[in-house]
């Protein structure tokens, strides 16, 4: 075990994968000597050279298309798109090309590609650099969607994503990059599609992922002081979804709150609620709730951004409300 940040854990995963497998390479804007916006690729170019750590022009269509093409012929690219907000510029390449090749070639070709993107607000980056768009990716058959919440998961899920034969959208919360925790040494993987019980409890199930997991744990701690025991589930990957874990927890607690950072309407929380209502309806003691952002773009000033991030405060109220 070593104590390291989420960004450092991701960096270590890159190093391990690139040392073990010469097919793995990474490409993106400012990822070489500069080390990427969040220093995730720091030092990689010095170790692996410019042929395996490629600095690219600002041309998302070209680099995403090229990563898909390289994956089709047997490479294992890790593509960095600095902010998930930028994915609109290459959305066709992700949605229509990366996600569909395996289907279109009837399994004769696959796209073992990892697309890394930073998501989330909290740093005052404003409208075009703070969004959470995971719901888009989850609706696309053919993509897997991973959103780690801890340094140890970041490393283990990244190594699993690199091993996966499918295109994996790997969303890193920019507020978590500096968070430090214990991370196991060496190579290990955290399987995609397996949720983590971040805290056990019998009264309410809080389903969350990525940057919302710390909020859920904090609310659970505060609720415990009031005698309410929350079970916090960290989904880790949204596709595949560990539906069984969610249903099992709700069957135990009878109450569900889904908490995420993204806007409420059309967010992934809706899918979680819909699945629970279909499968665990008879176990529900009260209406399942979504606690998520208001439907607005992300404002810039920290004071106004706090309105967008008001989920943090509203979660505890929701917990109190659902048990009363």
């Amino acid at each position: 075990m070593a104590r390291m940040s989420y960004a450092e854990a991701l960096n270590e995963a890159h190093c391990i994968a690139m040392r073990d497998d010469s097919r793995v390479f990474t490409l993106g804007e400012d990822i070489g000597e500069y080390g990427g916006i969040y220093r995730v690729t720091k030092g990689l170019q010095a170790e692996f050279g410019e042929q395996r750590v490629l600095d690219t022009p600002i041309s998302e269509i070209a680099i995403t298309g090229a990563a898909v093409g390289a994956a089709l012929v047997g490479s294992r690219p890790i593509l960095e798109i600095g902010f998930v907000d930028f994915v609109g510029t290459c959305w066709d390449q992700v949605f229509n090309q990366a996600a569909k090749f395996s289907y279109m070639t009837d399994g004769r070709a696959s796209v073992p590609l990892v697309i890394r993107m930073a998501c989330g607000a909290g740093l005052g980056y404003g409208v075009h650099h703070s969004q959470s768009l995971e719901a888009w990716f989850t609706h696309v058959p053919g993509l897997k969607v991973v959103m780690p919440a801890t340094p140890a998961d970041a490393k283990g899920l990244m190594l699993a994503a690199i091993d996966d034969p499918n295109p994996v959208v790997f969303l890193e919360h920019k507020f978590l990059y500096e968070v430090k925790d214990e991370v196991p040494d060496g190579r290990y993987t955290v399987p995609l599609g397996k949720a983590r019980v971040a805290r056990e409890g019998g009264d309410v199930t809080i389903v969350s992922w990525s940057g919302a997991v710390p909020w859920a744990l904090k609310a659970a701690e505060q609720a415990a002081a009031e005698g309410i025991e929350c079970e916090v589930l960290d989904l880790r990957s949204l596709v595949p979804l560990d539906e069984d874990a969610i249903v099992a927890s709700v069957e135990k607690t009878g109450r569900l709150i889904v908490c995420h950072e993204a806007c409420t309407t059309g967010g992934f929380g809706a899918e979680v609620v819909a699945r629970v209502v279909a499968r665990a309806f008879d176990f529900l003691d009260s209406e399942p709730l979504r606690v998520a952002a208001p439907d607005i773009p992300v404002p810039n000033s920290l004071a106004l951004e706090a309105v967008y991030l008001g989920t943090r405060e509203r979660l505890l109220e929701a917990v109190r409300g659902i048990v009363s």
């Binding site: 989850t138 609706h139 059309g266 899918e271 609620v273 209406e287 399942p288």
Partner: peptide, 28 residues
């Protein structure tokens, strides 16, 4: 396709606002 499609939003809305009236699971 169903997964995270628009009916999820409607289901979540109904589960929240029509919960007590529901006699059966919402089917999508």
């Amino acid at each position: 396709n169903l997964f995270c499609g628009y009916t999820a939003e409607i289901a979540a809305l109904l589960a929240d606002e029509a919960f007590d009236a529901l006699k059966a699971p919402i089917k999508r």
